[in-house]
């Protein structure tokens, strides 16, 4: 699975994109966040306040319960500030 990060989530995790193989125990966005947070303090910091984290799965907005598969692209980013 491909994961991409934008804005301060990219800075806190230290990566703009990565490819990961999910353990069998991880099957939704919430599980992915917990799994990533346990990996590294930078990730734990990035996901500390989920109220300011937005998620997209395959370029569409998704919520924490969205199911994930191996070919998906998951994006994490803050609330948008364009326009």
């Amino acid at each position: 699975m491909k994961i991409v990060y934008f804005a301060w989530l990219r800075e806190k995790t230290g990566v703009s994109e990565e490819t990961v193989s999910l353990p069998d125990s991880v099957n939704d966005v919430r599980g992915l966040i917990e799994w990533l947070g346990a990996k590294d303090p930078g990730y734990a910091d990035a996901f500390d306040d989920l109220a300011v984290v937005r998620v997209a799965v395959n370029q569409e907005y998704a919520n924490l319960d969205a199911q994930l598969g191996p070919g998906d692209e998951v994006a994490f980013f803050p609330p948008v500030t364009g326009g």
Partner: peptide
């Protein structure tokens, strides 16, 4: 315009004499 302010995936970072910061929604 209202829609893209809240949904289009863009993020602004400001540069000022105090440094840089991501703009809050």
């Amino acid at each position: 315009v209202d829609w893209l302010k809240t949904k289009a995936p863009f993020w602004k970072r400001e540069h000022t004499d105090a440094g840089t910061r991501w703009v809050d929604a």
